[in-house]
Amino acid sequence: MAQVEAKQGTVPVILPAPRPGHWIGVAVVAAVGSWIAYQALTNPGFQWGTVGRYMLHPQVLRGVGTTVELTALVMLMGAVLGVGLALMRMGGGQVLPLCAYAFTWFFRGTPVLVQLVFWYNLATLFPTLSLGVPFGGPKFAEVSSTAAISSFTAALLGLGLNEAAYMGEIVRAGLLSVDAGQGEAARALGYRPMQAFRVVVLPQAMRAIVPPTGNQVIGMLKYTSLASVVALPELMNSVETIYSRTFETIPLLIVAALWYLVLVSLLSAVQAVIERRYRRGADPAGARG
């Protein structure tokens, strides 16, 4: 201690590097920021009163509910199929990798809007859906396609299958990021293949899987607005229905935008929690023994 104090007088103190551009940046940001605030507060076109009136409107809330439900189901479908696709791509054999590759090629290679409308119009190709022996055999059960494929089903299939193609690649990237020695060590200990995957490899792959999946969920929350083209009353469709009647277009678009922002903020918080969970043991916290 005494030594340190004695030296302090002679050793120079290091100051931060001068940054002359800093204050110019602050001025520009302040100017732009205050212009946005000025417009938001003074431009009567925003109609904040109308925004406030519709934020908790029952029809809007139902739309929010549908959006959340569709996003959750699409991502669940995408994640489950995605893990399957990744395992098919990475497992042995010839047929399974090719099937997974073909699936990804098709559903990633065609616009999701086309797929959505396609599923909605499935009745044109197959007027009835039946369970039975194909190629003209007996049928055990039959329903009309228009009854089976609702707006919601069409949206779920269109978005879910597309999402599966992307999730498959994300999961595959995660699995590739895990050292091959991990799976080997598990096999050497006698873990069965599925145990080794579930207990050893997947939890480590999650560190690489979670961030891009968070991207996908947030993207999907907004992509569900595409389902308005098949007349699904999700958030976007709900505000459209209202403003086509009342012509309060801008305030209702703001209502939708605010709701999307609220939902995305919640999802980002959830993502941060999940990421922390899978960081266990990742950094050498604490001193070495």
């Binding site: 050292d179 991990q182 080997e184 060590a185 598990a186 050497a188 200990l189 939890p203």
Partner: peptide, 18 residues
């Protein structure tokens, strides 16, 4: 394999477990 222990050059401990 459950009856045969193996120790690897690169240890291969599971980093996400204590």
């Amino acid at each position: 394999r459950a009856g045969i222990g193996m120790v690897f050059q690169g240890f291969n401990l599971f980093p996400h477990m204590t």
